[in-house]
C-alpha cells in the first residue's frame, strides 16, 4: 500500500483553472479578430501579433529578471492584455508605438502592482490611454474599412463618434448625421480594430456566458445605463443628443463592457457591486462622450471605475444567507 495522502476537505476539485478561463476569453475574441481582418486586412494581423508578442516578452523579462519569479506567460493573461490592447488601437498604428503601449500595459499596468491578480487598473486600458495621451495624432488616425482587401488603401477617416463630436461642438443638429446601423452592426466603419463589429462582440459575449467565464451583471448594467441615460438626454433634446442605440453600437462600448470591464482582477466581487460598477461606467461614458473633450469615453470610464473597485468591494457585500 502507498503512503496515504492527507489533506483537508474538499478532496475533489471542479477542474476549473486560470488558463481555461483566459483561453476561453481568447476564444470569445476570435469573431472580433476575424471582423478586424476582414475590414482592415493585414494591418489588423500585424498590430495584434506585435502587441501579443511584445506583451509576452515584457511579461517574461519582468517576471524573470525584475521580480525573480518563475515566468507564467502561458497562463493566457498576457496574451489577453496584448489582444485587448491591439483591439483598442487603430489598425494603421506604427508598430513601435504598439510596442511602447505593451510595455506600459504590462510594466506599469500589471507588473508594478505585483503581477496577475494584484493590479488595480485594467492593464490593456492603461496602455491604451497612455498611447492616446502620448500619441494623439497616430492614435486617432483611423483607417477606413475596406471589406476583404488584404492591403487596403491608406484612406483615413473619422469614426462615427468623432463625427458626432464634431457635429456637437460645431452646433449642427446631430439628427442630420447619416447613421447606417447595419454597418455599425457588422463592423463596416472606422475605429479601433477590435471594436467595430457589434455582432462579433455579442457572439463573444454569448460564448463567455455559456461557458460561465463571466456573469452577465457588468455588461448588462453598462448597456442598460447607457441606454437609459442616453435615452433621457435624447428625449430631452433629439437635435442635440443622439439616440442611445447609436451610443451602444459605437466606440468601445461593446468591447469595453464585454471584455474589459469584466476583467476578473479589476472588477468587483459581488453581484451587487458588479451592477454598481456597471452603472458607474455607463454614466461616466455618456458624460465623457457628450460633455467631455474626447469623443470616446469607455476607456476612461472603466479606468475611473477600476479605482472605485476596492471601495465597492467594501460596501457592497454579496447577499448573505
Amino acid at each position: 500500500m502507498n503512503t496515504l495522502i492527507i489533506s483537508p476537505s474538499p478532496h475533489i476539485h471542479g477542474g476549473d483553472s486560470i488558463s481555461k478561463n483566459m483561453y476561453g476569453v481568447l476564444i470569445a475574441l476570435i469573431p472580433a479578430f476575424i471582423c478586424a481582418v476582414i475590414f482592415f486586412g493585414l494591418g489588423a494581423i500585424l498590430v495584434t501579433l506585435t502587441s501579443v508578442v511584445a506583451c509576452l516578452i515584457f511579461e517574461y523579462l519582468i517576471q524573470k529578471f525584475l521580480l525573480k519569479q518563475t515566468p507564467t506567460i502561458w497562463d493566457g493573461s498576457a496574451i489577453i492584455t496584448g489582444v485587448l490592447l491591439a483591439f483598442n488601437v487603430p489598425s494603421n498604428l506604427p508598430l513601435w508605438i504598439i510596442v511602447v503601449g505593451a510595455l506600459v500595459a504590462i510594466g506599469i499596468g500589471k507588473m508594478s502592482y505585483g503581477g496577475l491578480g494584484c493590479n488595480v487598473f485594467n492593464p490593456a486600458l492603461v496602455g491604451r490611454v497612455f498611447l492616446l495621451i502620448s500619441f494623439p495624432v497616430q492614435m486617432t488616425t483611423w483607417q477606413l474599412p475596406e471589406a476583404f482587401a488584404l492591403l487596403p488603401d491608406a484612406n483615413t477617416g473619422a469614426t462615427p463618434l468623432a463625427l458626432l463630436k464634431e457635429a456637437f461642438t460645431s452646433g449642427r443638429p446631430v439628427s442630420e448625421l447619416a447613421i447606417n446601423y447595419k454597418d455599425l452592426f457588422l463592423g463596416n466603419n472606422a475605429g479601433s480594430l477590435g471594436e467595430i463589429s457589434v455582432l462579433a462582440m455579442l457572439l463573444g459575449f454569448a460564448y463567455m456566458l455559456i461557458r460561465k467565464i463571466i456573469s452577465w451583471h457588468i455588461p448588462i448594467a453598462i448597456f442598460a445605463t447607457i441606454f437609459v441615460f442616453g435615452g433621457i438626454l435624447h428625449l430631452i433634446d433629439p437635435t442635440h443628443y443622439i439616440t442611445p442605440v447609436f451610443h451602444l453600437m459605437t466606440g468601445g462600448v461593446m468591447l469595453g463592457a464585454i471584455f474589459m470591464a469584466t476583467d476578473y482582477v479589476t472588477s468587483p466581487m459581488s453581484h451587487k457591486g458588479m451592477i454598481i460598477f456597471g452603472i458607474g461606467i455607463g454614466v461616466l461614458t455618456v458624460v465623457i462622450r457628450i460633455f467631455g473633450a474626447y469623443p470616446e469615453g469607455m476607456s476612461f470610464a472603466i479606468l475611473i471605475m477600476n479605482a472605485f473597485v476596492p471601495l465597492i468591494n467594501r460596501y457592497f457585500k454579496p447577499q448573505r444567507f
Binding site: 476549473d16 483553472s17 486560470i18 478561463n21 507564467t72 497562463d75 493573461s77 503581477g115 496577475l116 491578480g117 494584484c118 456573469s215 476578473y264 482582477v265 472588477s267 468587483p268 466581487m269 459581488s270 453581484h271 457585500k317 454579496p318 447577499q319 448573505r320 444567507f321
Partner: peptide
C-alpha cells in the same frame, strides 16, 4: 496559483460569504 479575484468563490458560497 495566485488569486485572480474572479469572484467564482463568492458566487459558489451557499452562505453568501466572500471566501477569498
Amino acid at each position: 496559483k495566485t488569486c485572480i479575484r474572479c469572484s467564482k468563490c463568492v458566487s459558489a458560497c451557499p452562505m453568501g460569504l466572500e471566501p477569498y
